[in-house]
């Protein structure tokens, strides 16, 4: 998918002395992971459609430090945080939206005590307000009658209590929504958090993402909605492992809402 309008960087905006409503923090997965890039593109297209004035940091964005912090490297985390806060404050950023719950959590909860204070929202929350305010609407019935389940991202749900926004988005579709047996605060992790994404798991009897994918498949849903690029990878892999990838697809909520545009 090609985004049709140029997406400005903060450097360009600052050069033109312009202003933005919100900074889109793309995140490492959203920038580099082939699968997650499609989420980034969908969300950017939706913001453009809704007329949101946003910009990205582009080459000035750097890892929030979340995987380093969760791996125990507080030094590296704080170095990343200090650099990012300098960049963000340099542009006078007030509000940040991100498609990654890990970036969301770190920017929202761990940057303030290091001097970085911003209003941080997750893209599912922003999409919910855009739909509620009528700046976006869902039509075309692409998901009419389809069975959709939602996998709670730990860093949205338990970590930050965001359970309703993702579900509200699904409610806008004419789909049939089905909860997994374990959901919301009881939702099982996909297995990627705490820097597990970047290493092999410890010896055990099963892989966490295989267990979680099986729970999602058990709902008979044909679409597993995710709200995190890492959950997306883990669930996609889990569905493949169960040989269900022909029937069940894993989609980010931004992609779902984007596909539901007429």
């Amino acid at each position: 998918m090609q985004t049709d309008i140029h997406i400005p960087t903060m450097a360009e905006i600052a050069a033109q002395q312009g202003q933005v409503e919100v900074l889109f923090w793309v995140g490492c997965a959203g920038s580099f992971d082939q699968r997650a890039m499609r989420i980034t593109q969908s969300f950017a297209a939706l913001m453009q459609k809704a007329g949101v004035r946003f910009a990205i940091l582009g080459t000035e964005e750097s890892c929030t430090g979340d995987p380093a912090k969760r791996a125990g490297n507080e030094f590296l985390f704080q170095m990343q945080a200090a650099t990012n806060i300098q960049t963000l404050d340099g542009y006078g950023i007030k509000k940040i939206v991100t498609t990654c719950p890990h970036c969301f959590n770190t920017l929202k909860n761990e940057y303030p005590s290091l001097g970085g204070n911003y209003e941080v929202v997750h893209h599912t929350q922003m999409l919910q307000s855009l739909l509620d305010e009528g700046k976006l609407s869902v039509s075309g019935g692409a998901f009419k009658g389809k069975k959709i389940t939602y996998h709670d991202a730990c860093y949205l749900g338990r970590a930050n209590g965001v359970y309703e926004a993702p579900r509200a988005l699904i409610n806008h579709l004419e789909a049939s929504f089905v909860e997994m047996k374990r959901c919301k605060s009881k939702g099982l992790c996909c297995g990627a958090g705490g820097a597990q994404m970047f290493k092999e798991s410890e010896p055990g009897t099963a892989e966490i993402n295989h267990v979680r994918a099986a729970e999602a498949i058990d709902t008979q849903a044909t679409i597993i909605a995710a709200a995190c690029p890492f959950c997306n990878t883990m669930m996609t892999d889990g569905v493949k492992q169960k040989n269900k990838d022909a029937e069940v697809s894993v989609l980010d909520l931004a992609e779902i809402i984007h596909q539901a545009q007429s």
């Binding site: 490492c28 959203g30 920038s31 580099f32 995987p67």
Partner: peptide, 19 residues
Amino acid sequence: IENNGAPWPFSQMDRAQWI
């Protein structure tokens, strides 16, 4: 992360290539 600002070995210069 130290060298490229990301947990994968991609260049920071390519951050906006998704566009």
